[in-house]
Amino acid sequence: MKPRIAIFSLTGCEGCSLAILELEDQLLAVLDAVEIVNFREGMTERAWDIDIGFVDGAVSTPGDEAEIRHYRESCKVLVAIGACACLGGINTLKNHQLAAEYRGYVYGERAAWFPTTAARPIAAVVKVDYELPGCPMVKEEFLRFVKHLLAGRQFRLPDYAVCVECKKRGNPCLYDRGVVCLGPMTRAGCDAICPTYGSKCEACRGIVSPEALAAAALNLRDQYHVPQEEVLAGLRLYGAYQEEKLP
């Protein structure tokens, strides 16, 4: 029996679902190995007897909460894909503003028509079995995950920082150009794609460990003299770190 797969979207850009369709070279092989039974963006048929459910997007409305509980009940294995599902993602930027303020700014007097809550990762509401982080999700990592699952092997995310992959690729360090890059505290697995294309890491895959965060925070303060506010603003972009102070 092929595993029955579903792909769902909560509040987000659906870019992670789209990333699956961008696996052009492997898509037909994947479709051969699994049966996709529920994927609103790509197909009309919808079934609810699901082995593995992939969810992109954050929980950001009362409706999302009901949906994610329904997905959890319908799926034997639930996988969060992308920064929104794993960290709350860019949606969490509103969590640092007063609800009346961000709702009123966009919807004015009609804010009540459109209910919303603080943006949260799906693990804040239901049990999540696996997380594939990133904004967007790294499609090669998705493929590695699917292979592991089909082979019955344990899947693990890298437990080291983006800097490791960045050095491996031979990139000059962005700090040498005066750029504040969040690679030292961010979980690897993206093959350091942003520094490779000349841009700073924005921590979209989340903090790799509290120790890495503490060490990087100390370096940023004492060696590079970066104001704490600036580091926090960077770490908040995709919800990697939401506290009011660095450790």
Binding site: L10, T11, G57, S60, T61, G63, D64, I90, N91, L93, K94, Q97, E101, Y102, R103, Y105, V106, Y107, F114, T116
Partner: peptide, 9 residues
């Protein structure tokens, strides 16, 4: 679709 609030972000 869920309201997104990008202008607020």
């Amino acid at each position: 679709e869920s309201p997104r609030f990008f202008e607020s972000f």
